[in-house]
Design a protein around this nucleic acid. Structure first.
Lengths: 217, 217
DNA sequence: TAGATTGTTAATCGATTAACAATC
DNA sequence: TAGATTGTTAATCGATTAACAATC
């Protein structure tokens, strides 16, 4: 664990392994080999073992890995036995979709509130209320929320980040297509939907000329 | 252009440069230095120049780059003077959000139809109709669509991909949290929202111990 | 045991960064 | 010219993969 290769890609792969393991488990499997896991996530078996070894996870020399205990190890490494509460700023298309997205629940992620400047969008009641933006700082501080999602238009994103920061949020997933200015004390992970789609388009165009070039990420 | 470093990250950065340049242009700027561009996308100036050099883009030894011609070069490299038509499979939260997402238009991307198995969601009229899934293959073939988005639940994703493939689609942006089986002849770019958010959570937790570790992607 | 699989070291590969000559 | 900036080569850095000993 003192190893310096605490690498972003590696962590992402750990999450993928965990997802795949849960799927395998629900299919009734008890054990896996590194080879199976590699297939499930589209990697190679050496890398699976290397990733595990980086975090001190070990299996059985011949018998592979016991799924249950592997999931347990991953959960403890990835810090996921708790429920994570998340707020969203921006109640537009993306914000609303994420508010209703079913995929978060089973990962222990709960969207607790959405904030928007547009008063007409307000919904003070309901399981996930939509509140005015000026309530953000108070709400976050009071409920000790650490994670936020920015789903505002480009123009509102920096302000959203600044508010979040001042409220004590420590990590942000940003969907606004702009690079945000932030200090060292906050984690920002950017998803730019336009760029992701354009990237597919570009690769398709390149593929027209060169042969074969499957791209999985 | 015969250089083999035709690298995914590099292409993504080219898209970012283009976005930043459009922004700078709309602010009235005429020229940029590699240093400015690096700031705008959060990179470093050597990398900017290296990326350009890989694609044969040159500037002026002292005067930096003229924004207009730089945008033009990038557009021709990234293949973006055309309008790209895209279909979505899955009319749930994500699919609907993407259908209405404003950010695509200015990138020359147009969502032309959404397909869903749920008949009750159908909307045959309107600018972006929601059609039954069985119309997908015919529609795509007839309109020569090359790019698709999968926004179905996990269970429907592989079928969606197979249908798209058989209809002649060549590139897919996949939001279903599952690794799809596809041949060499199709580009698949996966976005797993759960994993992206979990990654933020993980980094925040790690940051609690280690100091500073801003993460921008 | 023989075969299969893990865990790790060493080699390779690729991407980023530093250094610097060219030149406006 | 002197200073600043580009474009590119070489060095570094990090991540992936290959090889293989350990062993169940």
């Amino acid at each position: 664990m003192n190893n310096s290769s605490l690498n972003r890609n590696c962590v992402i792969r750990l999450f993928s392994y965990k997802n795949a393991l849960n799927r395998l488990k629900s299919l009734g499997f008890i054990k896996v080999f590194s080879e199976n896991l590699a297939d499930a996530v589209g990697g190679n078996s050496t890398q699976v073992r290397k990733d595990f070894s980086l975090f001190g996870i070990t299996g059985n020399k011949k018998g592979g890995y016991v799924i249950d205990s592997l999931i347990e190890s991953l959960n403890s490494i990835l810090g996921k036995n708790e429920l994570y509460r998340v707020v969203i700023v921006g109640g537009g298309n993306i914000g609303t979709a994420l508010r209703n997205y079913k995929g978060f629940e089973k990962e222990g992620i709960k969207i607790v509130a959405v904030f928007d400047i547009d008063i007409s969008k307000q919904q003070k009641t309901g399981e996930v209320p939509i509140l005015p933006l000026e309530d953000l700082v108070g709400f976050v501080a009071e409920n000790k929320i650490e994670i936020g999602i920015i789903a505002t238009p480009e123009a509102g994103a920096q302000r959203a980040l600044d508010l979040m920061l001042s409220a004590g949020i420590k990590g942000v997933l940003n969907f606004a297509p702009i690079r945000l200015r932030a200090g060292e004390e906050i984690v920002v992970n950017n998803i730019n939907l336009g760029i992701e789609l354009e990237n597919v388009i570009y690769l398709v165009n390149v593929m027209g000329k060169q042969k074969g070039l499957t791209h999985h990420r």
